[in-house]
């Protein structure tokens, strides 16, 4: 069967006839994939970093009075009722003092003159959470302040909140660049295809008279869209990978990137972006085919 070779040859013919526009389209598709994938890569890495940081979030409730063994279950229940908690640690004045001297290590002499009772007792609450619950953290902290004898709640979530805002902003950017991607792919591919169809209008008419089947006329055009999607996203992702590699090698010493363990997309995401681009570009060409071809 020479079917496939014919379809491919027709596709090649189409591409050659409008190669200038084809290249521009490819460039547009490549750039929009690059743009989207760039923001998406940062976003996913931020999410991962946030998750890891979020695991270490704890709320410290400083108290003006020691908590006795008998009071603990009631407090634990009260806190647990408000929100899911990983664990609750009660820290007495003595324990706080011991911790501090352990932290100071050799410098612990400075504590010698101090009353071991000078540090307040506290409750450390480790909530079950991830970054998305950041607003819950502040609610939680407000709640903890209402506990009896609580004087101050330190959530350390201030900068986490800022981090969260940034991630939210990034999500908007990802969303926008994703929309741009969808628009540019479907519209531009379908526009290019329209040019192909127009430039071959008389030929398509003749082909119809000669008995060309729907597949003979339409498949090459569909393939053209698929090819744009495949090549465009491959180039876009390859460009991003190169960019990532060069950044990664420049900042390979312990620093920001190591802290966040900046990573490229896993294979599934790469495949998904590739596939989505192919689907979108094919949809764009399908749109043009249905509108401009009557066979």
């Amino acid at each position: 069967m020479h079917f496939l070779s014919y379809i491919l040859r027709q596709t090649g013919k189409n591409l050659r006839q409008t190669w200038g526009t084809q290249l521009l389209t490819l460039l547009t598709v490549t750039l929009s994939v690059l743009l989207f994938a760039f923001f998406f890569l940062i976003y996913t890495n931020m999410l991962n970093a946030g998750k890891r940081l979020g695991d270490e979030v704890r709320l410290i409730v400083y108290l003006d009075q020691e908590i006795t063994e008998q009071m603990r279950p009631e407090l634990e229940k009260k806190i647990g009722d408000f929100g899911p908690v990983d664990k609750i640690v009660f820290v007495s004045r003595n324990e706080a003092f011991a911790r501090m001297s352990a932290q100071l290590g050799q410098e612990k002499d400075v504590l010698n003159d101090l009353d071991p009772d000078f540090l307040p007792p506290s409750i450390e609450v480790y909530p079950l959470k991830n970054l998305k619950d950041l607003s819950k953290i502040s609610q939680f902290s407000d709640f903890l302040l209402t506990l009896p004898h609580a004087t101050k709640v330190q959530s350390g979530s201030d900068w986490l909140r800022r981090f969260g805002h940034f991630t939210n902003l990034l999500r908007v950017v990802v969303f926008l660049s994703g929309s741009l991607l969808i628009i540019s792919m479907t519209f531009i591919v379908s526009y290019t295809l329209r040019l192909t169809v127009l430039s071959r209008q008389s030929e398509l008419e003749i082909l119809k008279l000669l008995g060309a089947t729907r597949a003979y006329i339409r498949l090459p055009l569909l393939l053209e869209g698929m090819l744009q999607g495949f090549l465009g996203s491959s180039f876009g992702l390859a460009a991003l990978y190169l960019l990532y590699q060069s950044i990664d090698s420049h900042f390979s010493n312990p620093g920001f990137l190591k802290l966040f363990d900046f990573a490229f997309f896993p294979a599934e995401i790469t495949a998904a972006i590739l596939l989505a681009s192919i689907v979108l570009c094919t949809a764009g060409s399908l749109f043009s085919i249905r509108r401009f071809i009557r066979i």
């Binding site: 119809k208 008279l209 000669l210 008995g211 060309a212 089947t213 729907r214 066979i295």
Partner: peptide
């Protein structure tokens, strides 16, 4: 329509 195309061949 597909039949017509086949016939035209």
């Amino acid at each position: 329509p597909a039949g017509i195309q086949r016939m035209r061949q």
